[in-house]
Design a binder for these strands. Structure first.
Lengths: 187, 187
DNA sequence: AAGTAGATAGACAAGTCTGTCTGATTTAAA
DNA sequence: TTTAAATCAGACAGACTTGTCTATCTACTT
């Protein structure tokens, strides 16, 4: 087992622990123990714990959109794609045991002065909003619109975020399900 | 300076620090230093750091609804009251420097097994949803409703939560402002 | 076969953390 | 004025934290 294998294992274990129990409650000692690697190997691949956090966020962010794209690909219409984003998040929510958004969690416990972390969170959310915005523009609005395209995009985005955050509190998919129903009546 | 004075000061300082920099990043040493009290005094009033956290959450939760009630009291119609909830949260958001919801923040960094903490968060959100629900019922729906009362309540609640969470990421009131605009078109 | 880089175990430094305890001092009430 | 409780400063225990360092071993490449 060399190089990439060890580095991947470190990042995998750290990612799981950072998400499950939080960044600040996860110690280096626990990471090296559960990854079953040597302390020096961790510091060979990552300069510091902060470095490991950034690697975790970057990898998660990248994978997130890869997964979303794959999920949306077989779906035909922009309207159905928008509704499928809710299904995508409901599925992840269940798979991840209702612990909420990776990025919001880190944003909530990171030091306010940690600019790199916040920029990553911001960028992630911005990309999601852009994705929604593009789909909204593709919808054929035959009937008259009660909301402008921009406000409709915000509505969908905010209902997604609110639904996920609330689902994390109640440990339930219901909020996101309702959010989806609401959006279905609006588009 | 006796009893209540010291206890209040401890709780005030701890509350500020827990919110500003997070519970896990705030140490007992920092609290006693900034509150300018003796270590033994802290442990005289609070059994443990966890105890202090619960006291912080309970006090914050209670004050939250006192403040909201006061804010809504002079407002006449249920429709205006609902929209004023957004103004209430926008005002707090600005006063608190866009660090997000106290309860969501703690929920994000607390250990998943800390049941008392999660129950407090849940209860707070439940009460907010109830408040909204009661106002929605009071609205006179002359025209036909696109959404049922229940779904309308969810919409308002989720837009509030999403707007606040997103505002914390962007450090801006814009998301909550947009959320308010959206709700204004729906009720 | 020799050399190089990754991986290993584990000691170590220097600091932090929470919580306990002692003993002196202040404060308020009886 | 006596008494009891509150507060003080600070030492202390014991465990934990991140990060460094040494020394050895293993595996791959040249």
């Amino acid at each position: 087992m060399r190089e990439s294998n060890v580095k991947d294992k470190i990042l995998d274990v750290a990612s799981r622990l950072f998400y499950d129990q939080g960044y600040n409650l996860t110690g280096i000692n626990q990471i090296i123990e559960e990854a079953d690697i040597a302390r020096a190997s961790l510091y060979h691949h990552f300069e510091s714990k902060t470095d490991l956090l950034l690697a975790y966020l970057e990898k998660t962010r990248q994978q997130w959109f890869v997964d979303l794209d794959e999920f949306l690909r077989p779906i035909a219409t922009p309207r159905e794609k928008i509704l499928a984003i809710f299904d995508f998040r409901i599925g992840r929510q269940q798979k991840l045991d209702f612990k909420g958004c990776h990025f919001m969690k880190i944003g909530a416990e990171a030091s306010q002065h940690d600019k790199k972390v916040f920029d990553l969170v911001k960028d992630h959310k911005e990309r999601l909003r852009t994705t929604i915005s593009e789909l909204v523009l593709q919808i054929d609005h035959g009937h008259q619109q009660p909301l402008s395209n921009d406000l409709l995009t915000d509505t969908i985005f905010l209902l997604l975020e609110g639904g996920l955050a609330t689902g994390a509190v109640y440990r339930s998919s219901e909020p996101l399900q309702h959010a989806k129903e609401i959006v279905a009546t609006l588009i």
